[in-house]
Computed example of a mutant assay.
Amino acid sequence: MPLEFLIAKHPINRINPDVLGLLTQAQKNTFARAFPNAHALGIQVLDDLKLDVDLPDEWIDQPPTAISELSFAELNKCYLELLKSGAGITGASAQLHAVNLSQRTQLVRAFEHPDAAIAKVTAKVTEIAATLPRTAADIERGRNPGDVLDPYILAATQTLLYGGGFQAAIGATVAHKALMMIEGLMGHLHEDVLGDMRGNVRAPEPRGFNQELLDPFENPFPGADVVQPPTGAGEKLRVHQVKSKTGTVKGGDGKRLGEQLRKLEQYYDADTFYDALIGNTLRGHRSIAGVRAASPNTVVTVGQAAFRELTRTNLGPELLLRVYQNAFMEAAQATSYNVDTMVVQIFATFQERAEKAGEGFLEVVLHDAVGGEPKDQDSRFYVPPVRGKRT
């Protein structure tokens, strides 16, 4: 089925049928189509939470945005008054219900199926949380065999930041490694969660030998993360490249990204966007010059402006935060990870090694970080492993 608001011969209607189906569904689940008025939105939220509260008649004549565009604080106040007038609920019970109603309203605004969206994010967060540092080995070496714990940085951390406290320095190291893993997680989560929001489609991962080549079936959107079908007559297809921050991509990569966006613009007659979510100014943007030089029509956005384009609401940042808060809480309960607990265990391992070796903590780390055989450390003797074979 061709997309609405575009001619039947539009190139988008000739892409992979599965992806086209997702775009067609995204047109149908836009917020404006799902809820004709504020009353319909309120009914959906109350039904989801199994609450019986009378809604004001005037909500029937108000657009859904009269409720959905309220901030969390404004929603909370609105629902407190509604619970009192519509169900006689006050006090602590009203406070709890108002928070739940406010959260649910924003989740319903963001997703056609909020619970499924949260479950999807929770699963990914739980998967990463399960790999957070728990043992000394987890901070001594990364996935790359050459990525070892730096004893000199550890010495600086111990001395400069914690007055000589080795356990505290280990705590900082564990927290840093965990934060790096979380940072890596967030970049992919942003793209996936925004791609699941109403009216959006997560661009399929590129496949094939040349992943930068536009192929309507194998790789319809190279260089894109989120695609938005038009929501009304006169609108174009909208294609977004999404980054966490303005400094995520180095300046030299801007030209390559710009060329990809320009090709998408030309092939699909699309509006293209290069969005950085976190930040409040384009000043200092590393790759804006390269992107715009290669793709002059691409709109470069940051912060609130980026969220506005991606979510079609001024509350985009809050919508993203809401799903994360729910998912992180569920993942934390499932994994029960606690940095302080892990640090005590890891410190005990280093302490045991130091006592056994008759050396200091840092000397033990130093020997493990640089010790080895010439056949592994000197190119004159080193034989690289054959790909596909374990060494």
Rank of each mutant, 00 (worst) to 15 (best):
V226M: 07
V302D: 00
R143S: 15
G254H: 01
A175P: 04
V227F: 06
G316C: 03
A169Q: 01
L132I: 00
V370F: 13
L320V: 11
F5E: 00
A130M: 07
T231P: 05
L49A: 07
D18K: 11
R322P: 01
A294G: 04
V291H: 02
E212K: 14
A305D: 05
A137S: 13
L107C: 09
L107H: 02
E363L: 10
V300T: 13
D48Y: 10
P216C: 14
R141V: 12
M1L: 08
F361I: 04
F361R: 01
T105G: 10
L41H: 04
V323Q: 09
K375Q: 07
N37D: 15
T126P: 03
E191H: 00
L101Y: 12
E69C: 00
E330D: 12
L80W: 00
A348G: 05
F217S: 14
L70N: 11
D138E: 07
K389Q: 12
V386Y: 08
A87Y: 04
R390M: 07
G252I: 11
Y337K: 09
G358R: 07
K263S: 06
K250D: 15
F35W: 10
A98Y: 08
A369M: 05
G184T: 06
G303Y: 10
P216Q: 13
L51H: 07
S85F: 06
G223S: 03
K77H: 05
E363N: 12
M180T: 02
K245Y: 08
A94L: 08
E112G: 07
C78W: 03
Q95N: 08
L41E: 06
K28M: 15
T298A: 15
T349C: 13
A276N: 04
E140K: 05
H97L: 08
V19E: 03
K50F: 11
L149E: 05
L96N: 08
G142S: 08
A137I: 09
I43T: 12
L101S: 12
V19P: 01
I288T: 01
D18A: 10
A276L: 01
P230I: 02
R380T: 10
A123N: 10
E359M: 06
A119R: 04
R286N: 11
P206S: 15
G163Y: 04
A116C: 07
L83Y: 11
L82K: 08
A332L: 14
K255W: 05
G247F: 13
D368E: 14
G199A: 05
G372N: 13
Q25M: 12
D57E: 14
G372H: 10
M186C: 02
A87T: 09
D271Q: 11
L264S: 03
P36W: 02
T131V: 08
A331C: 13
G91E: 06
A40Y: 02
Q325N: 14
H176M: 12
F273R: 01
K9E: 14
Q158V: 01
V239E: 00
F72V: 10
D225T: 02
P230W: 03
Y152W: 10
T173P: 04
S287L: 03
I15T: 14
S336V: 13
A327L: 01
M181V: 03
M186F: 01
E58Y: 15
L362D: 09
N100M: 14
